[in-house]
Amino acid sequence: MAIIKIKRPQLTIAEKLYLPAVIKGLSITLGHAIRAVLGKTPGAKRNFNSSGMGITMQYPETKWDDQLPDYYRGVPALVTDEKGRERCVSCQLCEFICPPKAIAIIPTEIESDDPWAKVEKRPQVFDIDMTRCIYCGMCEEVCPEQAIYLRQDYAMTGLSRAEMVNDKERLYEIGGVREGLVNKWNEIK
């Protein structure tokens, strides 16, 4: 029962000759070429904002910032909550899960005079090496504190390796504030 015998299709003489198929193929490619040369490639203007010659968007003259989908995975960054508290408690799960080992965290204790001393722990150093990052989004998925997010920034450039490492300050700058998420560090818990 599990074996289904499939018969090879019988080819007609035209198919066996192969030449008609070649000619058909040539006409299809020619059609595409003509439409491209005339600037009428289907979907070019509507979906990709391109010139019409092909669907390639001419970066950097045109950019697709407006068309980025919500689920776009760009540069990973840290976020603060509405009260300005850094969400990250440096549990290092992102460091653990990160497939290319792009994240390096050194945790530290929050001083007792800090308003958020009850959280006890925060990152002292939080580096994401963007030359290593593969934008997989596992850090975002694994974070128990909803502190790391992949933002929509994609133009991450630098002239040296050191410049490509995002430190904690820069990560908060990219990340900004995120509100209305689960907050388990309130008084009652």
Binding site: H32, A33, A36, M53, G54, I55, T56
Partner: peptide, 11 residues
């Protein structure tokens, strides 16, 4: 260039 216009690209 020809390959790209055939494949809806720019080249």
């Amino acid at each position: 260039r020809v390959s790209s216009i055939i494949q809806d690209r720019v080249g």
